[in-house]
């Protein structure tokens, strides 16, 4: 598992939910001292493998998104505490290679 440089937030339309999720992910990563990670958002239809090092999906489309690569699910898209917990767990289980 290499260093995460880019995360992609995915929702159905790629316009609203993923944008809001992306903003919150950006803030959480900054607070975690990982502000250098790029955050983008898109629709499930435009998602392909290899676009990002980590995919972040709304809970309902997790199963569809995880086929593209490493993926975590967020259920409450505006809850920064949930986002932080999920991301901390991910980074703990997938530490950057030294």
């Amino acid at each position: 598992m290499g260093k995460v440089k880019k995360v992609l937030c995915v929702c159905q339309a790629g316009l609203g939910s993923s944008l809001i999720l992306g903003m919150n992910v950006e803030k959480v990563l900054e607070a975690m001292g990982k502000g250098d990670i790029r955050v983008e958002h898109t629709s499930i239809g435009d998602t392909t493998a290899g676009q990002a090092d980590l995919y972040i999906a709304g809970g309902d489309i997790y199963e569809q998104v995880k086929v593209f690569g490493p993926c975590v699910a967020i259920h409450n898209l505006v809850n920064k505490n949930e986002i932080r917990e999920v991301l901390e767990k991910y980074f703990e289980e997938n530490p950057d290679e030294e």
Partner: peptide
């Protein structure tokens, strides 16, 4: 899509 656009309660 099971009303995925419910962002939070």
């Amino acid at each position: 899509h099971n009303a995925y656009f419910v962002l939070c309660p």
